[in-house]
Design a protein around this nucleic acid. Structure first.
Lengths: 294, 294
DNA sequence: GTCTGTTTGTGCAGTTACGCACAGAGAAAG
DNA sequence: CTTTCTCTGTGCGTAACTGCACAAACAGAC
């Protein structure tokens, strides 16, 4: 039962009773319809229609095909409208993967997105490994560092996060506060786990301090944050996050060279969809209300 | 949602995850698969798959299509086996149309047919008008008289019914029995309603007797029979039917010129089916057990 | 009866779609 | 890092399919 098009032609013939009518509905020549029927009957080794001068009358097999194909056409029509509507309306699952450090900024945007589009189910994936937009693992990704250059991904700049060097009040009370990087000797620092971290401020830090000065390492940005609050050492923090916590003391003010650019990355196949576009535009819009960052 | 073949192609791609695999299953070149997907996505204005070097990953729309097309394929497969089996097994409705006079011979054959093939539902149509084998009104027809010459119908001779002229004993006791057609004057006859009856014995009768001698006319052969038994007049009867009734007196013995040939007529589109063949062969076989007729 | 409209059926010409070959890109293995 | 394999993607020639035109047959109207 290969060649579904022939089934479709046979269905129209069975429905309308004439080859000519079916040809008109299908938008093909009636000769094509005849050939389709002939081929299908030959393959099934059964007559589907009785031919006469007034048209084609379906046999029992033809009537059977009629009912089956009728539901098929309905199913396909529903599928079509569902798919077409799917691209235009914002609904269904929506998967975002992002770097760990920006969840505090991202979640309010997601809340607003959910509020605007009640029919979406949100999934935020922040994990060690980089989720691939290929393979359909996520609809959009928030990436940090150098601009991603993966093919088939459309990359848009989102914002530059200003990073400063901060410590908890308790740390400053215990160890003092270095006025510049020349006074870093003897101080304790917090950094990322991976040596080859792409964050510019971590590369800067690696040049300025000895490895044994970094007393706390973690892959998880939330852990850096917590370690900082516990007074374990001096560490980088987004300026907006430090400003929200009065217990944190600014060691060194943010510098442009420490800025971490954020990127919105979407797969080219999904970038045109209304759902993705709705989220991206909302995200860009929300970013403008973050004056502490830009 | 036209072009069901493209849906089928997309279904296989969604199922297998790769263009190459789908191409192999479908028995086409992988370039064709790519073109089908491209065309379908363009028509739906939605991406069904995310393309990457390892294959095609279905999007939500693609997964939706997958489930719909999966049931479609199952439905078509069942339809196919049903239709193919339909041609080989004897089951379903079986419609016979026949001239009215032979039901007494036909019904036993139908009973045997039903006994052999429990899965058939028999319908015997004996009506004024001639049912057309075109339009699917019947599977086989038993026709009488001159050989039908309708196109697209396969005509086979079945048997020649011997007709004689009979009357009920009560009629003979009241009016006597003519020894030959020369003594028909004053006798009463039973004939068909239609003037242009194709039965040869009625044409013969029309030449021998005056119109007002025909005192009973009916379109229904069973009515002739009954009228004969009631002693209304002299009428033609199949020899076998008269022989079964001892109250009937033979007026004139059957003559070859009165023979009414019966024909088995089937539509060419249905003639090859096993169901029709089974019935036709059974009918021919049964006919040999009617020695009174031939 | 003739005429008209509709339908099926077929040979021929054009066009679309297919198969083929090759290129390019990742991913996995050594 | 290099090699190898698999899979996708595209230009080109061919083959299959489609559209066209015409013929034939039939039903209905007049």
């Amino acid at each position: 039962m290969e060649n579904w098009d022939e089934i479709r032609t046979a269905y129209q013939v069975a429905r309308l009773g004439t080859v000519s009518g079916a040809a008109e509905v299908l938008g093909v020549h009636h000769a094509t319809v005849i050939r389709h029927i002939d081929a299908l009957e030959k393959r099934l080794a059964t007559r589907l229609f009785q031919r006469h001068a007034r048209g084609y009358t379906p046999t029992e097999a033809g009537r059977d095909l009629l009912t089956v194909a009728q539901t098929t056409e309905e199913q396909f029509a529903q599928l079509s409208s569902r798919i077409k509507g799917h691209g235009e309306t914002v609904q269904g699952e929506f998967i975002i993967t992002s770097v760990g450090g920006v969840t505090g900024l991202l979640v309010p945007v997601l809340a607003e997105f959910q509020h605007r589009h009640q029919a979406v189910q949100l999934r935020l994936m922040t994990d060690m490994r980089i989720f691939r937009l290929d393979y359909g693992e996520a609809h959009v990704a928030i990436r940090a560092g150098a601009a991603p250059e993966e093919p088939d991904n459309v990359v848009q700049p989102l914002i530059r996060i200003r990073y400063g060097l901060y410590a908890h009040r308790s740390y400053v009370e215990a160890h003092g506060s270095p006025a510049s990087e020349q006074e870093f000797a003897g101080h304790r620092f917090i950094a990322a786990e991976t040596e080859g971290s792409r964050a510019p401020f971590f590369r800067w830090l690696r040049d300025k301090v000895a490895p044994d000065q970094i007393v706390f390492r973690s892959t998880e940005p939330a852990a850096w944050n917590e370690a900082l609050r516990q007074g374990i050492g001096i560490g980088f923090l987004p300026a907006w996050e430090a400003a929200a916590n009065s217990d944190l003391v600014e060691i060194l003010a943010p510098r442009p060279e420490w800025d971490s650019p954020l990127w919105i990355v979407t797969h080219v196949d999904l970038h045109r969809t209304r759902k993705v576009q709705a989220f991206v535009s909302l995200l860009k819009e929300s970013v403008r209300t973050w004056p502490q960052c830009a």
